Lab assay of single mutants.
Amino acid sequence: MFYPNSPQTSPQLTQIPYGQQYAMMQRQIQQPYHPFATTEPQARLYPYHYQGPIQQEQGGFITQQSTAASPQYVQMRVTPVDQSIMSGYPNQTANGSSSSSFNYNIHPQQQQQQQQQQQQLRHHAMPVGSVPLQDDRYRKQLIVNYLAPDVTSTDLHELFSRFGELDGARIIYDKQTNMSKGYGFVYFCHAEDAKEAVERMSGYEFHGKWLKVGYSTNPLNIVPSNSSPYVHAGSRGAAG
């Protein structure tokens, strides 16, 4: 039997160049792979992502010199942007860049009308829970959420009447099932009393439920100042 490094198959040491006398086997001759043993700084910083320098080929596509990437890492192929796409944008300079302001050559009167329309939209648009300043009635009506099913309009009136005089209180019921929808409205005579009720009743436990109280901004629920107070009856038909 002959071994790869046996004296019968191995040459004389004098015939082997210096430095390879003890590297006779194939696994010894093959050098191990060192990912950080390279002179390129990109490979030292990113050993798993770097795959060699990027070269520009004919046709405008950018390719990489090395083989496919590892399945664990996804390499994105980048193509140059066609400058003709950006030619339609206004205020574009000769080098292809555009300024931040756009001039669509709008007539001054049209621009003024658009600004007025935007101001009107901001004036009428009102986020949930906010209180408008032009109508004091919005500051007097509250919406009470997360009410228990057994709470009546009379219970709601008695709960909030300790903060001040009320114009009314009612629970909203479903017309088909005649069941409470879980929320109601309270109408105060003074805005200061309503503000105190919002601050003190939010998070209050009532009939096993934690109440959420806020201003009601729905104009359909506003009680006119010259109208008669609501009837605080315990029956659902009268309260709904």
Rank of each mutant, 00 (worst) to 15 (best):
F2T: 14
P4D: 05
N5L: 04
S6G: 08
S6P: 10
S6L: 06
Q8F: 05
S10I: 06
S10A: 10
S10Q: 06
Q12D: 06
Q12Y: 05
L13D: 08
Q15E: 06
Y18T: 13
Q20C: 12
Q20T: 05
Y22W: 12
Y22S: 12
Y22V: 08
Y22M: 10
M24N: 07
M25D: 11
M25F: 05
R27L: 04
Q28L: 06
Q28P: 09
Q31M: 06
Y33P: 12
H34Y: 04
P35M: 03
F36D: 14
F36S: 15
F36Q: 15
A37N: 13
T38S: 12
T39D: 12
T39K: 14
E40P: 09
P41N: 07
Q42Y: 09
Q42P: 11
R44A: 04
P47A: 04
P47W: 00
Y48Q: 15
H49V: 04
Y50T: 14
Q51A: 08
Q51E: 09
G52R: 14
G52A: 12
I54G: 09
I54M: 07
I54K: 15
Q55R: 13
Q55L: 03
E57S: 09
Q58W: 15
Q58L: 05
G59I: 07
G59F: 03
G60T: 09
G60C: 13
I62G: 14
T63K: 14
Q64F: 02
Q64L: 02
Q64V: 03
Q65E: 05
Q65V: 04
S66T: 07
S66M: 06
T67M: 14
T67N: 12
T67E: 05
A68W: 03
A68R: 14
A68E: 04
A69M: 05
A69G: 06
S70R: 13
P71M: 05
Y73E: 12
Q75T: 06
Q75Y: 02
M76R: 15
R77W: 00
R77H: 12
V78R: 15
V78H: 15
V78C: 14
T79M: 07
P80L: 05
V81C: 09
V81M: 15
D82W: 06
Q83K: 14
S84C: 10
M86K: 15
S87F: 05
G88D: 09
G88V: 05
G88L: 07
Y89V: 12
P90A: 11
P90Q: 13
T93C: 13
T93N: 12
T93F: 07
N95C: 13
N95F: 06
S97T: 10
S98A: 08
S98C: 04
S98W: 14
S99M: 13
S99T: 11
S101F: 11
F102L: 10
F102N: 07
N103M: 04
N103G: 11
Y104A: 10
Y104R: 12
N105Y: 04
I106L: 09
I106Q: 04
H107P: 09
Q109H: 08
Q109W: 04
Q110R: 13
Q111Y: 10
Q111M: 07
Q113F: 12
Q116H: 12
Q117E: 06
Q117C: 11
Q118K: 13
Q119Y: 10
L121Q: 05
L121H: 10
R122T: 04
R122K: 09
R122G: 05
R122L: 04
H123M: 06
A125P: 05
M126F: 09
M126T: 05
P127V: 06
P127Y: 13
V128C: 12
V128R: 11
G129Y: 11
V131P: 11
V131E: 05
L133G: 08
Q134I: 11
D135S: 07
D136Q: 09
D136W: 12
Y138S: 03
Y138Q: 02
K140Y: 01
Q141A: 00
L142Q: 00
I143C: 00
I143K: 01
V144H: 00
V144S: 00
N145W: 00
Y146L: 01
L147P: 01
L147I: 09
L147M: 02
L147S: 01
A148W: 00
A148F: 02
A148R: 15
A148P: 04
T152S: 08
T152I: 13
T152Y: 05
D155M: 05
L156R: 00
H157I: 15
S161I: 10
S161N: 07
R162P: 08
F163I: 04
F163N: 02
F163A: 01
G164W: 04
G164P: 00
E165K: 15
E165R: 15
L166T: 03
L166K: 01
L166Q: 00
D167H: 04
D167L: 03
D167G: 02
G168E: 02
R170G: 00
I172K: 02
Y173A: 06
Y173E: 09
D174I: 02
K175Q: 11
Q176A: 08
T177F: 15
T177N: 05
T177E: 02
N178C: 13
N178V: 13
M179V: 10
M179L: 09
M179A: 09
S180C: 03
G182R: 04
Y183W: 00
Y183S: 01
Y183A: 02
Y183Q: 01
G184F: 01
G184P: 00
F185M: 01
F185Y: 02
Y187E: 00
F188C: 01
C189R: 15
C189V: 02
E192M: 05
E192L: 05
D193S: 08
A194I: 00
K195M: 12
K195P: 02
E196Q: 12
E196H: 10
V198C: 08
V198S: 05
E199F: 15
R200C: 10
R200W: 15
S202C: 15
S202F: 15
S202P: 07
Y204D: 01
E205N: 03
E205S: 06
E205H: 14
H207K: 11
H207Y: 15
G208R: 15
G208S: 08
G208C: 14
K209D: 01
K209V: 01
W210Q: 02
W210E: 02
W210A: 02
L211T: 01
L211W: 00
L211R: 00
K212Q: 04
V213H: 00
G214H: 07
G214P: 00
G214Y: 02
Y215D: 00
S216H: 02
S216C: 00
T217I: 07
T217P: 00
N218G: 01
N218K: 02
P219M: 01
L220I: 12
N221P: 07
I222R: 03
V223L: 09
P224V: 09
P224W: 03
P224F: 09
S225M: 09
S227E: 05
S227W: 15
S228K: 14
P229N: 09
Y230S: 06
A233Y: 15
A233C: 09
G234C: 14
G234L: 13
S235K: 05
S235Y: 14
S235Q: 08
G237M: 11
G240E: 03
G240H: 13
G240P: 05
